[in-house]
């Protein structure tokens, strides 16, 4: 088995006051292996984006620990360690409009990281690096001189990807990178992400609400609901043999581009129940985990 690149243990992220906390993440644990894509799905407000941002240190976590390449990221304190961390882990953001500074050209956006990390000796080297990054995401060198608003949504997202790649990271958190894009453009971006993963040996944490895209791009999927991971397993397992009723409900709600199928689709409703305090992570099948009590797990597996 491949090495663990990221280990999340009992992660909690609470916002608001200590008396009345909003439990955005309520104790989750998972691992990400080198070279794989872990899909994190859930509906809005389930805590999936917060998870991504906590892992990349945009938020200070409330409790738990996040180990990245064997080091606890909360214990990174020196400027040198933090810079090193930033080089190893990068993020692709959801909104291709809000994630690019409108006052900067594509070239400036991509080279921002070079400026911060002092990664070039002269202007020519900087230009060369920007050019080759633009080409690697399917744009041309001439695009470097254009402002963000001159690009279409898909092209903007490519610039966002080039920026994330600029420090040559090994781990990328993609926070709903395609949900703001048109259908035909989504496919372009997903293909690009897959191709880059192959070329550069990247590991992805792919956060999304679109189950079909997640199933397509992920090796394993974690289903998140109200701050908890309810089910985790290989993409095929989750899709073909879901165990938790919430996962079943979610899957039954995804519309398929198939009229005949849609006409006869039966949606499985999910009634929210508070988590049983005795609930824990149970390995229902090899590599397929579900959150619940032993009794529930047996009941659901039927």
């Amino acid at each position: 088995m491949a090495n663990k690149i990221l280990e999340v243990q009992g992660l909690k992220q609470h916002f608001g006051t200590a008396k009345d906390p909003i439990k955005a993440i309520d104790g989750i644990s998972f691992d990400v292996y080198e070279g794989e894509t872990l899909g994190l799905v859930g509906e809005s407000g389930c805590g999936k984006s917060t998870t991504g941002r906590s892992i990349i240190r945009l938020y200070d976590i409330t409790d738990g620990q996040i180990m990245f390449k064997g080091r606890n990221i909360s214990e990174l304190k020196s400027r040198k360690d933090l810079m090193q961390f930033n080089r190893e882990m990068q993020m692709i953001f959801q909104d291709p409009y809000a994630s690019l500074n409108p006052r900067m050209t594509a070239g400036e956006l991509i080279a921002e990281s070079f400026d911060i990390h002092g990664l070039y000796k002269n202007k020519a080297e900087r230009r060369e690096k920007v050019g080759s990054l633009l080409e690697s995401v399917g744009l041309t060198r001439e695009h470097a001189y254009r402002y963000a608003h001159e690009f279409s949504g898909g092209q903007r997202q490519r610039i966002g990807i080039a920026r994330a790649l600029s420090l040559d990271p090994s781990f990328i958190i993609a926070d709903e990178p395609i949900s703001a894009l048109d259908v035909s453009i989504q496919a372009q971006v997903v293909n690009l992400l897959k191709q880059l993963q192959k070329e550069r040996g990247l590991t992805y944490l792919f956060i999304a609400h679109d189950l079909s895209m997640v199933k397509y791009i992920s090796d394993r999927i974690a289903v998140m609901y109200r701050g908890k991971i309810l089910e985790l397993g290989s993409a095929d397992e989750i899709y073909n043999n879901p165990i938790h009723p919430y996962t079943k409900s979610l899957l039954s709600a995804v519309p398929q581009p198939n009229p005949e199928y849609e006409r006869n689709r039966v949606r499985i409703p999910y009634k929210h129940t508070e988590h049983d305090p005795a609930a824990k992570v149970i390995e229902a099948r090899p590599g397929h985990f579900v959150f619940g009590t032993e009794a529930q797990a047996k009941e659901w597996a039927k």
């Binding site: 945009l58 933090l82 990068q90 809000a98 994630s99 690019l100 921002e112 911060i116 990390h117």
Partner: peptide, 13 residues
């Protein structure tokens, strides 16, 4: 809180 500022932070700015 715009995403481009968050992006800059993740780059180490």
């Amino acid at each position: 809180n715009q995403e481009y500022v968050l992006a800059a932070r993740t780059l180490g700015a």
